[in-house]
C-alpha cells in the first residue's frame, strides 16, 4: 500500500500545477468516471438476448398453428387464441402437474428440515469429531457430480420396490439437496450472535427449543432462499424421473414436456404453450420470493 500512497501524493502535487483544472475535479469525486458505456452496451444487449427468445415463446404459444407459419414470428398474433393451452390442459398435463407438485413439496419440506437440523448441529457442536465428519461429508458431496451416482440409485430404488413411484423420486431428491442446503444454512446460523445462544442457555432452554425459538426465526430469510432454490431444482428435475419412472401416469412435468414434444413436434405453438404452462408456477414463485432468493444466493456463495 505504501507504494500507492507515495505515488498518490506525487500525483496530487503534479495535479496542483496542472492547467486542466476540470479534469482534476472530476477525478477526485468518487465513482464519477462518466457512464460505463461498455457495461451499459453489454447489459442492454444481454437483456435483448434474454428477452427475445422468451417473448417469442410467449407470443407463439398464443398463435393458431395455421397462422404460425404464415406470420412474422416476432409480431404478436393478430387473433390470439387459447386453443393451444386448451389442448395442453386437456391432455394429461393436470396429472403431471400434480405429480410434480407432490414430488417437489414432498422432497423440499423434509430436505430443508433435516438440513436445518444438521446445519444447526454443525454450527453449535462443530468441535465434536462426529459433527466435523458429517460436515466434511456434506462438503465433499458438493464437489461430486451427483448424476454420476444415478446407476446405483436406480439399483437401490429397484431393491426398495420404489421403482416407478413418486416416493422413489422424492428420496434421492432429498439426499441430493442436502449438501448445498446445509452449507448455506450453516453460513447463516453462524451469523447469529453467540450471546443470544448463551442467554437461551441461561434461561434453561434445550437445544431443540433454541433451534426452534432462536435460530429458526433469525435465519428465516436463508430458510426461504434454500426452500425456493431446492423447489426450483426439484421441480425442474429431469434425470431422476427419466431413470426412475416408467409409466406415463408417474411422469413429472419436465419429462412430460419432453414426451409431449416428441409427440407433437410439428405443432410448435402447442409445444410452446406446454413450455409456458410448466414454467408458470416457478415464475410465480420467483415473483413472490425474488428478493429473498437473489440476496440469499449472493450471500450464500460469497461467504
Amino acid at each position: 500500500m505504501s507504494l500507492t500512497q507515495t505515488t498518490g501524493i506525487k500525483r496530487a502535487e503534479t495535479l496542483e500545477s496542472e492547467p486542466h483544472g476540470h479534469r482534476r475535479k472530476r477525478r477526485r469525486r468518487p465513482g464519477s468516471d462518466g457512464p460505463n458505456w461498455l457495461g451499459g452496451a453489454v447489459s442492454w444487449l444481454w437483456l435483448a438476448i434474454v428477452i427475445v427468445p422468451i417473448y417469442w415463446i410467449v407470443i407463439t404459444s398464443f398463435k393458431a398453428q395455421s397462422s404460425y407459419y404464415a406470420t412474422n414470428p416476432l409480431l404478436p398474433p393478430t387473433e390470439p387464441t387459447l386453443a393451444n393451452y386448451q389442448m395442453v390442459v386437456e391432455s394429461d398435463f393436470p396429472l403431471y402437474f400434480v405429480n410434480s407438485l407432490i414430488v417437489t413439496v414432498g422432497a423440499v419440506i423434509p430436505a430443508v428440515a433435516v438440513s436445518f437440523m444438521a446445519a444447526y448441529a454443525i454450527v453449535r457442536g462443530g468441535g465434536r469429531r462426529f459433527l466435523r465428519g458429517v460436515n466434511s461429508l456434506f462438503l465433499m458431496g458438493l464437489a461430486i457430480p451427483l448424476q454420476a451416482t444415478i446407476i446405483p440409485v436406480f439399483l437401490i430404488i429397484i431393491r426398495l420396490h420404489l421403482y416407478d413411484s413418486l416416493l422413489g423420486l422424492i428420496l434421492p431428491s432429498i439426499a441430493f439437496a442436502i449438501p448445498l442446503s446445509v452449507l448455506i444454512l450453516a453460513n447463516f446460523i453462524r451469523d447469529v450472535p453467540k450471546e443470544l445462544f448463551e442467554s437461551m442457555r441461561l434461561d434453561g432452554a434445550g437445544e431443540v427449543a433454541t433451534l426452534l425459538r432462536l435460530a429458526l426465526p433469525l435465519t428465516m430469510p436463508a430458510v426461504v432462499t434454500v426452500t425456493i432454490y431446492n423447489a426450483l431444482t426439484i421441480w425442474n428435475g429431469f434425470l431422476l424421473p427419466l431413470v426412475l419412472t416408467q409409466s406415463p401416469d408417474k411422469r413429472t412435468l419436465p419429462l412430460a414436456l419432453w414426451s409431449f414434444q416428441g409427440q407433437y413436434s410439428v405443432n410448435v405453438p402447442a409445444v410452446l404453450a406446454s413450455v409456458v404452462l410448466t414454467s408458470l408456477p416457478i415464475l410465480a414463485m420467483y415473483i413472490i420470493g425474488r428478493r429473498q432468493l437473489l440476496s440469499g444466493l449472493t450471500a450464500g456463495f460469497s461467504k
Binding site: 437440523m117 454443525i122 457442536g125 465434536r128 432429498i174 442436502i178
Partner: peptide, 11 residues
C-alpha cells in the same frame, strides 16, 4: 446435538 444431524446424514 449429534442426533439433530442424523436424519440428514442417513438420507
Amino acid at each position: 446435538l449429534p442426533w439433530l444431524a442424523v436424519p440428514a446424514l442417513v438420507l
